[in-house]
Design a binder for these strands. Structure first.
Lengths: 213, 213
DNA sequence: CCGCAAAGTGGACACTGTCAACACCGGAAG
DNA sequence: CTTCCGGTGTTGACAGTGTCCACTTTGCGG
């Protein structure tokens, strides 16, 4: 395939994306600069143009990588839940992925901001434009936050712990609440909210959406 | 005062901000470029440096202007509610400002994205850093979305339509839900959601938060 | 009437994304 | 084994940006 075999550098595309992720961690999307990542990879600028159409394309790849990190944290936190009661466990898992979302935003604001740059499409194959994709951003199933949230909600209705007639649109409600708080905290007017008030906000958002679903 | 008297241009600072708002409308924050706004004002670049410390400062002024527009729409929609029952009216007004928030984001995505650029401080005086400000972003009271939302929630508890013990943090819950949906729709993975699904999402978010508060 | 500070100008610098033309190098064809 | 050729990386250039500096203009107060 196109980029898997070794070439001059070893595996430049991977090195560029990894460098971009590094830069994004501290500087956000604005820090993933074409010439900077090229420099960091020990390669001259314009080399990146053999692997990415343009700066936006490179940024999209970095963004997808950040989105994967978010998804992985959510899955890990969900898997760490261990409760005897199935229903209680499912509820706890939903809560856990919500907290994971917010925690990720607070712990890695650069990655979080980068993840939502220009509707990141995952690093994989070209975006199939057929109407057959299963969720926003065309994330691979089970990978992206949207798919993870969907699966958790499905589990809740399967257990009868969530009325099926209220299921349509539930992802939007849960996702919006958690994403909105994260965005307001990381790059919005709620940035730098003192710790106590921050805890209040997190609990208010999570409990409100849990009650309202 | 510093910039109120007439000078060469007439009132350059105002012209620059207005031009920035124009550019932001179609191009978002990235379009409010120092040299471009200067050009549009019929003035050479560097002239802006007599009125703004740097590009970020100009962008903050433009962002504050956009935030005001959002607040004005919310107030207008709230004032348009006319119901005989006080409680029903208060509830309807809360719903109205939420819809106004989302509508603004959808109708003016450029302004919406610009409004939340670097924790906009309003155009007014320098940011007082004492701990005495009343809300995030130090918006003038009654002006910014946060203050408007707060007032509406206060009205609800005043009417006894909302348990006072659940009041702390309620702004965060409501604001996060509405802001999160707007952000996901405007520049997130939900961008370009088809109309029917969009309506589902809006209703799900608003009804869930209304139920959960 | 004069002078001085505020307001605006022109030029320069470093940096960015992007394009075009060139240099390399390794594997496939002969 | 030689030869070519396409993928890979390089050099150089251009337009555009934010910012600093020195300079000029302008209008008001003494």
């Amino acid at each position: 395939m196109a980029t898997s075999r070794a070439y001059h550098h070893g595996n430049l595309r991977e090195a560029l994306v990894a460098g971009g992720v590094d830069l994004a961690r501290t500087g956000g999307p604005a820090a993933v600069v074409l010439r900077a990542v090229s420099r960091r990879a020990g390669v001259s600028h314009n080399a990146a143009y053999r692997h990415f159409a343009n700066h936006e394309d490179l940024l999209a790849a970095v963004a997808a990588r950040c989105m994967e990190k978010l998804g992985r944290l959510m899955l890990a936190r969900s898997a760490a839940v261990d409760l005897p009661d199935e229903v209680a466990a499912a509820r706890a898992r939903l809560d856990a992925i919500g907290r994971a979302y917010i925690d990720f935003a607070l712990a890695e604001p650069g990655w979080f901001r980068t993840a939502f740059c220009g509707t990141a499409t995952p690093e994989g194959e070209a975006r199939h434009d057929g109407p057959s994709h299963d969720g926003p951003g065309c994330e691979g199933p089970g990978e992206g936050p949207y798919a993870i949230l969907s699966a958790h909600l499905d589990e809740l209705v399967r257990l009868g712990a969530f009325p099926a007639d209220r299921r349509p649109g539930a992802e939007y409600a849960a996702w919006s609440a958690v994403h909105g708080l994260s965005d307001l905290l990381v790059e919005g007017p709620l940035r730098g909210l003192p710790g106590a008030e921050l805890r209040t906000a997190v609990e208010a958002v999570l409990s409100t959406v849990a009650r309202g679903l």
